[in-house]
Simulated scan of single mutants.
Amino acid sequence: MEKLFEYMAKEWSVVSQAPFAFLIISAIIFGLVYLVSKWHFTGTLNETKAANETLRERLLLKSEQAESYKERALKYDDKVQKVIESDSISLRERALELVKSIREFSERHKREDQHNSQAQQAAMRKAKTEEEKNATWDYFTNEMMRLGSERNAEYERRFRIDAILLRDEYRSRMPDYEPLDQHIDMLYEHPTNYFGYSAVADDLERMAKTLKQ
């Protein structure tokens, strides 16, 4: 501001000759300065509001996640308690029911894979050019990977926790039990294919029928 006054003092002779033009120019300059300042302030304010809104959304998400984890933990604790408190007969029934469900699940997905394989063979026979064969191969390969991912996700969602809980409870009641497959514990976690599903079901069934009633 001091420099502005010094400049006006130096140029006063020019300004005094055209005061009206000077006032108009000054008004325009101050108006532009005001608009720029307002734009900057508005932008900063909007950024602050957006940041606060994002923070609130994150806090809400964290709160919802915490509630979800708490609910899962309570359900898990309840499930563990029911397994531990089961007598031999109830535990056997629970295990054999799970074995049945795992085998039905495995057979259903096996049929889907067989259907996909047959469809691939038929499509490959119809393909005439190398380009068509490559496209057919890529399509059914992706389809096979999709089915595999869905199958593993379903096992983890429906059976993994129950299978491990029952396995651990049976092991605690039969400390001398030795599984036939030395890698069976890994298969309980990630069976990956039909051999793994079958191994888990067979191991649970064997323990259920071995424990004395």
Rank of each mutant, 00 (worst) to 15 (best):
S198C: 00
Y155K: 04
H183M: 14
L187V: 03
T48S: 15
S88V: 13
Q121L: 14
Q120P: 00
L147W: 01
A135R: 10
V14N: 09
H40Y: 06
I184N: 05
L180T: 12
Q65A: 02
L55F: 06
E53V: 08
K38E: 11
E2D: 14
K62H: 11
Q213W: 09
P191D: 07
E131Q: 13
R56E: 10
A163W: 01
E2F: 14
F195L: 15
E85V: 09
N152K: 12
V80D: 13
E132F: 06
A135E: 13
R56H: 10
T44Y: 07
G196W: 05
A199Q: 05
I25L: 10
I24G: 01
T42R: 11
L180C: 03
R94Y: 04
L180I: 00
D87T: 04
G43P: 00
G196D: 01
Q81V: 00
M144E: 15
K128I: 08
A27C: 15
E64T: 07
Y7S: 10
F5S: 12
P19H: 13
K10H: 08
W12N: 10
K133Y: 03
E169P: 05
Q114L: 08
H40M: 15
M8E: 12
E150F: 00
D78Q: 09
H40A: 14
S172I: 05
T141H: 13
I84H: 11
V80E: 12
R92Y: 04
S86W: 06
D78I: 01
R171C: 11
L166W: 01
I84F: 13
D181Q: 13
R125L: 08
I89A: 08
N134R: 15
P175D: 09
A21K: 07
R72T: 08
L96D: 07
E189W: 09
R125M: 13
F195W: 12
E64P: 04
D77A: 14
L23M: 12
T42M: 10
A66D: 05
T48L: 12
R146G: 01
K133C: 05
M8L: 11
